[in-house]
C-alpha cells in the first residue's frame, strides 16, 4: 500500500530483466525502454508482482519517430504503455520500439484486456502489427483504407471510392459525384 518511486520500480524490473534500460525524456520524464523480446514477460511481471501491482493499463499509444529530432535519428514507431496501480497509486511508463522494416510487437491483450481496443487503434493509425492479438483489424478507418495516417510520411489520398477528397469543383449529380475536369460548378452547388 505504498507508492514506489520510479528508481525502485525500475530496479525491481531490471533485477529480473537486465536488458530493460532506464531512460529519461528531454523534459525529465522517466521511462523504461523494453526490448520487444522481453515485453510480454515484463508486462506480466508488472501486473502480477504484488509490490508493483499494475492492474490497470491507462493508455497504450504510439508515435512515429521519423521526423523527431532524436539522437541518434531513428525511423522506428514508439509504442508507449502507461501503467497505473490503483492499490499503490504509482505510475510507470514502458516503451517499446517497432522498427519500420519489421513493424511487429507482441500483443499484451492477454494481460490487460483493455489493450484489445488500444492495440487495434495503434495498428490502424500507425501500422504496428501485434502478434497474438485476437482480432487485429482496422478499428476507425474502413477496411479498405490504404496506409496508416499517423505515420509522418503518410500521403493524403486524392479520392476514396471515386469521391475526390478536395472540395473545389464538386457537386452532387444524381449519384456520388464524379466531376469532369475543368467543368464549372452549377450555381449555388458549392455554397
Amino acid at each position: 500500500m505504498s507508492a514506489l518511486p520510479f528508481s525502485e520500480l525500475a530496479a525491481r524490473i531490471r533485477a529480473r530483466f537486465p536488458a530493460v534500460a532506464e531512460r529519461m525524456s528531454e523534459n525529465r520524464q522517466p521511462w523504461l525502454l523494453v526490448p520487444a523480446a522481453d515485453l510480454l514477460a515484463v508486462c506480466q511481471l508488472c501486473r502480477d508482482d504484488p509490490e508493483l501491482d499494475f492492474a490497470s493499463l491507462c493508455d497504450l499509444t504510439g508515435w512515429d519517430l521519423l521526423r523527431y529530432p532524436a539522437q541518434p535519428p531513428s525511423d522506428a514507431i514508439v509504442v508507449a504503455y502507461y501503467l497505473h496501480s490503483l492499490r499503490h497509486r504509482h505510475h510507470l511508463t514502458l516503451k517499446a520500439l517497432a522498427p519500420r522494416a519489421c513493424c511487429t510487437l507482441p500483443s499484451v491483450s492477454a494481460i490487460w484486456p483493455a489493450a484489445i481496443a488500444f492495440e487495434r487503434e495503434v495498428y490502424d493509425l500507425l501500422g504496428v502489427q501485434f502478434s497474438g492479438h485476437p482480432r487485429l483489424t482496422r478499428i476507425l478507418l474502413p477496411e479498405d483504407w490504404e496506409g496508416h495516417p499517423l505515420r509522418k510520411d503518410y500521403a493524403y489520398p486524392a479520392a476514396y471510392h471515386g469521391v475526390p477528397h478536395a472540395r473545389a469543383g464538386q457537386w452532387f449529380e444524381d449519384g456520388p459525384a464524379r466531376a469532369p475536369a475543368g467543368a464549372a460548378p452549377p450555381a449555388g452547388g458549392a455554397a
Binding site: S25, E26, N27, D59, P69, Y82
Partner: peptide, 9 residues
C-alpha cells in the same frame, strides 16, 4: 516549448 513529452490525466 520544451522538447519532450508529458502525460496528464
Amino acid at each position: 516549448p520544451p522538447r519532450g513529452e508529458v502525460r496528464v490525466r
